[in-house]
Amino acid sequence: MFRSSREDWGFQLLINGFLLIVLILILIPLWRVIMTSLTPLDVYMRGGTPAFQFPWDWSFAAYAQMLTHPTFPRATLNSIIITICGTTLSLALTVPLAYALSSRTLPGRKIIIALILFTFLFHVGLIPTYLLVAKTLGWTNNILAIIVPPAVGVTNVLVMMRFFEGIPEEIKESARIDGANDLQVLWQIVLPLSKPILLTIGLFYAVNYWNEFFTPILYLNDQNLQPLPVLLRNILIGQNFSEYVDYDVSRAASIESLKSSAVLLTMLPMVLVYPWIQRYFTKGTLLGGVKE
């Protein structure tokens, strides 16, 4: 099929060379952070972070210091709680909404879709929501303020709705003839067929909750409630470094190493999980089309 000529080799060399450069550009910051986090204090004092290191120069002191201070594990726990509760609530609201709207014969379906789409296209900005959550509901220092307001994403509803529409009506109808109501049809027939889409949408929600840092800063003043990204921000730019880490020179890690180890520890769960779930993200995005 292909002419295996010199032109081909030259072409492949060119484009794969380009891809290699892109790969390196993406990885350089990560490499730098890894190197900084592993640089022992004495090496750092002599000349900063080296570009390359040999195994005998590694030091995990920064990681040890980060993980033994109570703040980091607590923030991780907060992040896990927010992610699990948030994703559960999101799915508990998105699934029935998408399923009900996937019934084309439902009276009022178009009106409801229009009402939902309207909120997707028209935003009134941060302040009206802030007044509702902080003043009317009084959810300051309450993780409900992080979990509930962003619980339903319009794109996710529409993607799931389209998936439900694709499930053959006959399967649902036969269950109805056997006396099942729509709630039972959803639970017993539709959901077991929808595991891939549940996983995909659930992962989208989970990533958003895991990465959320703005609403925690907005609504949570209590340091004990802050999730990982907020702690990382405080570590990176905060003035009171010693509040988050036992900064102790005798334990052999520079401030730069500590910051870098915090970046990597915050990234780690996502980096570990991501390669396994990448295909679900890809699938979900393609289902959603150009909408992000």
């Binding site: 350089i28 910051p29 990560l30 730098r32 952070v33 900084t36 990533v207 895991w210 990465n211 959320e212 840092f213 990204p229 907020v230 990382l232 921000r233 990176l236 730019i237 910051k259 870098s260 915090a262 970046v263 915050t266 990234m267 996502m270 991501y274 993200f281």
Partner: peptide
């Protein structure tokens, strides 16, 4: 899939 805060950390490293 990384939070903007992680991006801040990476940018500071550079």
């Amino acid at each position: 899939f990384l939070s903007c805060v992680i991006m801040l950390g990476l940018l500071l490293a550079l």
